[in-house]
């Protein structure tokens, strides 16, 4: 083989490499436009197909603070039993006669909440179940650096456990304290509305076990669902509305003391 030949081969190699690289570059430049073009058609189709938007109503007036929901959630979703990890929990608020507010949630309310303030000092007291609010403008989804947490097409905020890098930024971004770092999987963990249940037609575990039907789960786009009826009948409120997160968990009987 002469030097010419080697040179020619080399030139060929360079040419093909450049072509490959250029092609990839061009492809990646064009890709976003391609997606936009697809999206326009896709969006219309999806709107017709997607008639589900999951949400939850919580009736503070009927919650008795038995903690069954928090317990069932841990069993159903394999959440560590230690009292630092909760996908849902129940808080007891006690407004005292002197105006001070005492908030308690020992072990997330599992085992039933017990009143620690003597009756004579109590102005009023009520229970507030808490969980991920599945915000429409979810700050956690906005903050995740890699796209490991997202809002599913049916409105549930989920965590991709195989993709999460465990940076805790989403935990910092959540105003409701609904996220935690799972010590076993070492990824961010949170309420999924029991996604594995609701997609099979079952209720979330917390709703299933609630003895007083204080949690109403359903499809916000289904006019006949119990949830929509609940929202029509009751004056509902969301948590921390000033943060503009637009939660999909609605509370009836929310008092101004609740934070």
């Amino acid at each position: 083989m002469g030097t010419e030949k080697i040179k020619e081969n080399r030139r060929k190699f360079f040419k093909s490499s450049v072509a490959l690289l250029g092609g990839t570059l061009l492809y990646s430049l064009l890709k976003p436009f391609e997606l936009i073009a697809q999206n326009k058609e896709g969006a219309v189709k999806e709107d017709k197909a997607n008639d589900t938007l999951w949400g939850m109503g919580v009736d503070i007036e009927t919650c008795i603070g038995c903690g069954k929901c928090a317990e069932a959630c841990k069993v159903e979703n394999n959440v560590p039993k230690e009292p630092f990890y909760f996908r849902t929990w129940v808080e007891q608020y006690t407004v005292k006669n002197n105006g001070k507010v005492k908030i308690e949630s020992p072990n997330g309310g599992i085992g039933g909440l017990k009143q620690s303030v003597p009756d004579k000092d109590i102005f009023k007291s009520f229970m507030v179940p808490k969980l991920c609010n599945h915000c429409t403008n979810a700050p956690c989804v906005q903050a995740c650096p890699v796209g490991a947490t997202f809002i599913s097409p049916d409105g549930v905020v989920l965590v991709d456990a195989t993709y999460c890098i465990g940076c805790s930024y989403c935990i910092q971004a959540c105003p409701y304290g609904a996220r935690f770092m799972n010590p076993v999987t070492k990824v961010a963990d949170k309420c999924t509305f029991c996604y594995h249940r609701i997609t099979k037609g079952l209720k979330p575990a917390c709703v299933e076990v609630c003895p007083t039907n204080a949690r109403i789960f359903g499809n916000l786009r289904d006019r006949k669902s119990n949830l929509v009826k609940f929202l029509q009948k009751k004056q509902t409120e969301v948590l921390k509305p000033h943060l503009n997160t637009h939660p999909k968990v609605f509370y009836n009987g929310l008092s101004s003391e609740v934070k």
Partner: peptide, 29 residues
């Protein structure tokens, strides 16, 4: 291009297959 997961970006900035993963947890109740 090589390291981006397959279903990434199908519905949004996430792995679309993760939706199915979330459905796979065994039922207790």
């Amino acid at each position: 291009q090589y390291l981006k997961p397959d279903s990434f970006g199908k519905y949004g900035h996430y792995r679309a297959n993760a939706i199915n993963d979330a459905k796979l947890i065994p039922l207790q109740y």
